[in-house]
Nucleic acid binder design. Sequence first.
RNA 1: GGAGAAAUGGCAGAGUGGUCGAAUGCGGCAGUCUUGAAAACUGUUGAGGGUCACACCUCCGGGGGUUCGAAUCCCUCUUUCUCCGCCA
Length: 422
Amino acid sequence: MLQLQRVRDNKDAIIEALKKRNIDADAMLNGVLHLDEKRRALQTELDNTLAESNSLSKEIGNLFKSGKGAEANELKAKTTTLKETSKKLGEDLNNIAEELQNLLYQIPNVPHESVPAGSTDEDNEEIFREGEIPELIEGALPHWELAKKHDIIDFELGVKVTGAGFPVYKGKGARLQRALISYFLDKNTEAGYTEIQVPHLVNEASGYGTGQLPDKEGQMYHIQADDLYLIPTAEVPVTNIFRDDIVKKEELPITYTGYTPCFRREAGSYGAHVRGLNRLHQFDKVEIVRVEQPENSYTALDGMVEHVKNILRELELPYRILRLCGGDLGFTSALTYDFEVFSTAQDRWLEISSVSNFETYQANRLKLRFKDEKGKNQLAHTLNGSSLALPRVLAGILENYQTKDGIQIPEVLVPYCGFDSI
RNA sequence: GGAGAAAUGGCAGAGUGGUCGAAUGCGGCAGUCUUGAAAACUGUUGAGGGUCACACCUCCGGGGGUUCGAAUCCCUCUUUCUCCGCCA
């Protein structure tokens, strides 16, 4: 959620920047300012009414104490109208404040200046590419066929037990999953991130805190009986640890890594692009989350990008990095880099990581602040990234590492797997 | 799931209708003393709105109510603790 003060001070610049998202925010921002003005006027009126009624109450108390009951009762009559007025004003104020909040919720984050304009993923800007795309062996297969051939992932079984998009990993497939999780967590903790295990279900307030609600209501699984949501990413529970928090400046940066399954309804997706592991309702992901001082957040973002690069180098997977264009940028993000690994057998790039700086957008919703050197509370910056998402990494490994003699396991993973080929 | 008790500032903890945004202690910050530090002493120290700055307003787990006036009384929800039941 954008800060009101920022909207007041930089309306035109924000409108201009939001054009990169192909949004004409003019009406919305003017609406915000209009409601804000109304809100402040009402607040002042209410404050004055309450002040008057407070001082009357004090007077009444004093009169009673000095035995002037008659005078006190006279004043009491006056407070009745004040009470009615303040009740009415309070209701109006609540309505306006709610309207203002709802409008603010609808405005996405302001893109960073480096974000290219554009409307679809076609307009994303490739900024880096590394790794050799292997030459395919004859009869190379896409990962879903490899999975079947080696009996390591059973999609049909998942359909039987749950439904489409819930695969069952078996034998070496299951072990490879576990190996990847351990390997990613190890790489992240080596880089200084603290490992953390968090709930896989969150409440509504957490959904609002990181911005999945109300924007992506339909994308999360909702357990109505208890009003809880299955997490779409570890970002939600991990970042919400800091909801309503004021941390000390010395405690920053805060860096966490956690493994969780992720649940996404992915309503409306279909077709060849969602085959196999390409798109699932449940998948595993290891996430990194940072809370930073504003002046450090972009350096931190670059550091996260380097960190993910190193992992992909070690796995020897061909990948590229995209700077997302305004149209493809997530609602809450100011700048996002997507990592894509090349899937040889499918002849396409698969997104495996998304590294973002949310600046104060989430922090403002979360009320996550830190005390600066002047003792003033300031909103922190939040960042997160996948490091990494499992299924498409697995797809990339299966497809890129297939040989005549089976699938080779990347060297760094062999100690984690306990075998070197499938 | 049943019975009882509780929820106050960073922490501990007082406060049972007006003098309470809240005693006291610890912690934090600043100062005195000291070569420096510690100790001791003095001062200061919650959040949000609002204002050029004040004033002023709101917040004592959440929501609602009683009252001229609520941290304090009533209702309700949530959470925690103790006891019982169930259980990986």
